[in-house]
């Protein structure tokens, strides 16, 4: 699995490096709250993100994409596996180094209605992180509020307004401005446009792209919508039930998907064309429980190309073409 990192690390030193990350959550039951089972939220995930790169994580609910983000954001410390950021091992960060990490990695969440405090003016929302981290003096913070609003395409005068006075798309711009306040190196974007109207989504994605061009920030983009992730990311990884099943630069991933699950996701990402959309078959079956994932290949219960070996042995993560990795017995 280390080859995955090496190929991208060769060009530039990666900013974020995730190696063989595992996260199981205990399931407790009964009067004594005994642990009766584990949810296999992520089971051996590895990837890296270069400076200025957008890395997309795609998958359905329960695939582990948000759990991965929680480890990167240090909401939880990864118990197994390794996450390094700018050369620092996240498992052992303390004190100043830890505060530094919390500044360097910021997040934008799905719902701009619940992620902004309705009782705070935009000015205070944007200043709070700077105050908490003791960045800049008072005058400079005020200036920065105006700068941040300009960067995200809002009028600097809107600093005096409250979140409810903005539309959904504008609120998400405020959330982006807040994430930028501490000059981060990486922003975790967890479904940043799924709560927005179709006509507003592209505006926000274009804004994120412009910000990246100007500031050189990296993004970890998490979403379920394959088409927009592919357009917005340099590289994309597809996750299923806690495993990464395919990873490639977005163009080859879209034009030559290898894993049957990726192909199925493509069919589910219906094209806006009535003649095409009606011919696409659906992936059958339901997502199995992550408490007791299928043996061997986890996708085998729904896979149209399933073989005998799939239930007996777990497939190996392989580089099939340069930079294009897949975990499937077909390759």
């Amino acid at each position: 699995m280390t080859t995955a990192e090496r190929s991208t690390a060769a060009a530039t030193e990666p900013l974020l490096e995730v190696t063989n990350l595992v996260r199981h959550y205990p399931v407790k039951s009964g009067l004594l709250q005994r642990t009766v089972a584990h949810v296999h939220a992520i089971d051996g995930v590895s990837f890296s993100i270069a400076r200025g790169e957008t890395f997309g994580l795609v998958g359905e609910s329960g695939c582990g994409k948000t759990t991965t983000a929680r480890q990167v954001l240090l909401v939880e410390r990864p118990p197994e596996g390794m996450v390094t950021f700018a050369g620092r091992d996240l498992a052992t960060l303390k004190g100043r180094e830890l505060r530094r990490h919390r500044r360097d990695v910021q997040a934008v969440f799905q719902d701009p209605y619940s992620s902004l405090n309705p009782r705070m003016r935009v000015r205070d929302i944007l200043m709070e992180p700077m105050v908490v981290h003791g960045m800049y003096d008072r005058g400079r913070r005020r200036e920065r509020v105006g700068d941040l609003l300009r960067i995200v395409g809002l009028n600097p005068h809107s600093a005096d307004l409250y979140p409810h006075q903005f539309s959904g798309g504008q609120r998400q711009r405020v959330a982006i401005a807040r994430a930028l306040a501490l000059e981060p190196k990486l922003i975790v974007l967890d479904e940043p446009v799924s709560a927005l109207d179709v006509s507003i989504r592209a505006q926000v994605l274009n804004l994120l792209r412009d910000i990246q061009k100007n500031l050189g920030i990296s993004y970890l983009l998490i979403a379920h919508d394959l088409a927009s992730v592919a357009q917005a990311s340099h590289r994309v990884a597809v996750m299923y039930l806690g495993r990464m099943v395919e990873m490639a630069p977005s163009r080859p991933l879209v034009t030559e998907p290898l894993h049957p699950y990726t192909k199925g996701l493509f069919a589910a990402a219906l094209p806006p064309d009535p003649r095409l959309a009606r011919q696409l078959p659906a992936i059958q079956g339901e997502i199995p429980s992550p408490i007791n994932p299928p043996s061997g290949c986890r996708f085998r219960t729904r896979c149209p190309a399933v073989m005998d070996i799939c239930s007996q042995a777990a497939p190996v993560w392989k580089e099939v073409k340069p930079g294009h990795f897949v975990e499937c017995h077909l390759y």
């Binding site: 006509s199 507003i200 592209a202 505006q203 994605l205 274009n206 792209r209 919508d225 394959l226 088409a227 927009s228 592919a230 357009q231 977005s250 163009r251 879209v254 034009t255 493509f266 990402a269 094209p271 806006p272």
Partner: peptide, 13 residues
């Protein structure tokens, strides 16, 4: 967004 198309800037309203 259409799969397989990679516009420089996404068309917006």
């Amino acid at each position: 967004p259409r799969l397989g198309e990679f516009p420089e800037t996404l068309p917006t309203i």
